[in-house]
Design a protein around this nucleic acid. Structure first.
Lengths: 198, 198, 198, 198
DNA sequence: GATGAATGAGCTTTCATTCAT
DNA sequence: AATGAATGAAAGCTCATTCAT
């Protein structure tokens, strides 16, 4: 059982790297088995199809990303600083898998939606989940008078887009950003905006 | 010449819609000619290859998007309101092609990077251009003390990601947003942030 | 009628050159009409098909080659010198069309048999005619004790092959041979062989 | 390894026969796999392309033909009979592959130059090699006073043409010649010519 | 007569998947 | 469990020919 699992993840890792670098359609089973150094038939002992490895990779990425998120505790007794700090932590947790694994970053930022309707919906659902959660958080924040009056849907969508943009930039450019600085900048932009105080 | 051009755009429109809905790789020449109601050979009378229609579609989208952008006039004599107004106009111009053509939105937000290295680079270059331009603008804004001290690269990347996120959301969800409200919200979020004033 | 014929031969000339240089299958109707500067449909006003131009070209070449041949007059009163001289003249006449038109040479020596069974048989029949005629001549020569005892079929085949080889060499190499010398050499080789007299 | 090789030659044999009978361009992959009773993909497991089977067939034919040739030993001590005998042996070796395999004969005599420039040059080079070698031999023969004064280039070209003619005749007609008689006749024609001794 | 846009049968090639060993 | 030879559906593309103008 141990062996089987480790071979499975070998194959998944190889596939992930290839999908990330060349894209789903430009990666053939040939490429995968060559990189994983297994026989053609062996691949199909571990996975039903090319499609299914891809799905598993995406699923595991989603899980990894979501696993670090914790609900933000708010309430009359919770100060602004605590809330900001919780946001920073969530932000770090959500993004670090991608910054620790550039193939994951590449995959998430450019290949995830290129397979077919089923795959697109999977990814869409993932992002929608995050957006919905964020929207609710923003609504809650408005009730608590932490967040200014705004269209929370638009803002949630924009914020998730922002994060995707950051990941994309990292995936494409490979420029290693100072993660701490990145989180600070994003938090500051989101909370205060970019203009000087009037 | 009239006829030839209209045939061409017919084919391009059909291809665009299919690429947008099913993705580049899941759209076959068969699909395109069936939708355009032309014969196999006719397609190749107007385009060199499947790849080349795709490229033309992308190129024309990029041109459409960029064509509405005007440099933001700044300077000691230019007030904040004028600058914000110029930004709003640019924002509207850049985004309206996508909101007027949901297939374009779908294409731009999810299919553009799935073809191959050449195509990816084309799209990457497009976004980088915008990001670079935005970065410079932010730097300029800082010098003029309009923009607060910040990491202009990260911010530029985040802002472009925000826009992509908005487009993506529209493309996926199809929910028609009030365009005017959208622009207002984005501008407000970017300039003021989401928090209540302290 | 005059115009029609001249356009016909224009097209044939263009086609001949292209077939000679690129081969039948690598020459497209496109190539032919581009070279002849006519429209696609016009081609089909003058010829039924690509195949049929090719056939006409071959037919006309065959006719050109055969038209110069005259039966060799032999008999008790005809001396060896006269016979040799008649052979030289026939040889010159048969070969000169090819040496005057290198495209014809190329066509005859390398493209003639590449079309299909029908075309192959046409060309085969042509060569067989010549071989048959030569065989009979050799038989006659043997009866008249001009030609030594030999297998006239094999010899006829070999002699025609020799001529084809010469044409081929010219077509491929383009080296212009002194036609007179060529005829002399061939005649000498055939009549006397290549060895020194013992 | 055994199996793989035999599959390969099966396919090559089928392809050779089809190319010989119908020509390169009139033979489709369909034809080949139907004859070889394999699936479409199987063909490409063994060969890169249709073109490449053709090239392998030609290459192997050339090798087969050349492999039997041995340099003719000449010199003051070597008598005419020995030289003639060496020539006969070379002639037999060069021609026997074709007489043992009529498809090879057909291929060599009529299809070899119909593919494209690359293929034509391959075949041209092969013939030129033989011609060059023959030319040098004739020059050497002249120096040794075995061969009479003659234009060795023209003669070499003519001799090779003669052989091609013989092969062609066999390929087309299929008439089985007595190989021994054939060699004798050719040798006699070349050495003595066809005329009675004066 | 002349045109050239349109046609579609047919081509070579790819590659995810199967299955006998 | 592991292998890799075999499969065949389906892809992109070409080009000789037709026919409305």
């Amino acid at each position: 059982m141990k062996d089987r699992d480790s071979r499975r993840s070998d194959i998944m890792d190889c596939a992930k790297e290839l999908f990330a670098l060349k894209g789903y359609h430009n990666t053939s089973i040939n490429d995968i088995i060559a990189k994983a150094q297994i026989a053609r038939g062996t691949f199909y002992l571990y996975f039903d199809s090319k499609r299914s490895v891809f799905f598993e990779i995406i699923d595991s990425a989603v899980e990894q990303i979501l696993s670090g998120l914790r609900p933000v505790k708010t309430g009359p007794n919770i100060g602004m600083d605590s809330i900001l700090s919780q946001l920073r932590i969530n932000l770090s947790h959500a993004m670090s898998p991608m910054f620790n694994d550039i193939y994951l970053a590449k995959l998430v930022s450019s290949q995830a939606e290129s397979l077919d309707t089923g795959a697109t919906e999977k990814v869409t659902a993932f992002y929608r989940n995050i957006i919905d959660w964020l929207e609710e958080s923003l609504d809650e924040g408005q009730e608590l008078s932490i967040v200014r009056p705004l269209n929370s849907r638009i803002t949630a969508v924009a914020l998730v887009g922002m994060l995707k943009g950051i990941i994309w930039s990292y995936a494409i450019g490979g420029e290693m950003l100072d993660f701490h600085e990145l989180v600070e900048e994003l938090t500051a932009n989101v909370t205060r905006g970019i203009m000087v105080k009037e």
